[in-house]
Amino acid sequence: MLVINGIEKKFNAGTVNEKVALSNFNLSLAEGDFVTVIGGNGAGKSTFLNCVAGVFGVDKGSILIDGLDVTKLPEHKRSSVIGRVFQDPMMGTAGNMGIEENLALAYRRGKTRSLSWGISNKEREIYKEYLSHLDLGLENRLHAKVGLLSGGQRQALTLLMATLKKPKLLLLDEHTAALDPKTADKVLQLSDRFVKEGNLTTLMVTHNMRHAIEHGNRLIMMHEGRVILDIKGEEKQQLTVEDLLKRFGQVSGEEFANDRALLS
């Protein structure tokens, strides 16, 4: 579903601040793979997801989604096959627009927008239905401005928006990191459910090792812009946090450095 061939990404190339965020990065996901991504601070996890989403171009290599080479495609065009939820709950929704308007924007992802109404009555019923599944009472607040919602509600809504039009690829970048533990669990459960129901190919970055182990069918660990561990299937199911830390030490020759990971 997703094939990444030796991509490289440098920031501030040619200056003293040059930073190689991804180097010779390879990865290939099968359809329906739910991959959790962990790694220390600055390992390049966000950069990797942003390269796939097209937020910025890559310096080398190619990215294929479902056989289509998207390496040169601008962000808004790639969006037709990619659903995204960001770390910052503010980032995934338009705060000055209503809940239904946000959903209507997402409903039209990948479609050429015209001068027909931005939202129809028929859609409203669909949205109500979907929102009721979130179990947050949002189905009765279709007109409410999204800016009035809590972080958790916004993330749940963003998740719904990301999957409303079934994406070929779902990218979750620490999408529960800004939430309190209880809300984070709820949003994680929702993510699990949406992924399962839609059999969505998913990449989920998390700093929480336990989450990385408990969710998904495959786990990759990144370090200095490369994949240094790739654990699947049976082996992933047996995995513990201690294992993971030990194996990181073996592969990288360093101690795992993510200020947040060890706390949780």
């Binding site: 962000e75 338009a94 000055n96 627009m97």
Partner: peptide, 11 residues
């Protein structure tokens, strides 16, 4: 309102 979100929705 939110250009980042807009691009993520294919705008």
């Amino acid at each position: 309102d939110n250009p980042q979100m807009a691009r993520a929705q294919g705008i």
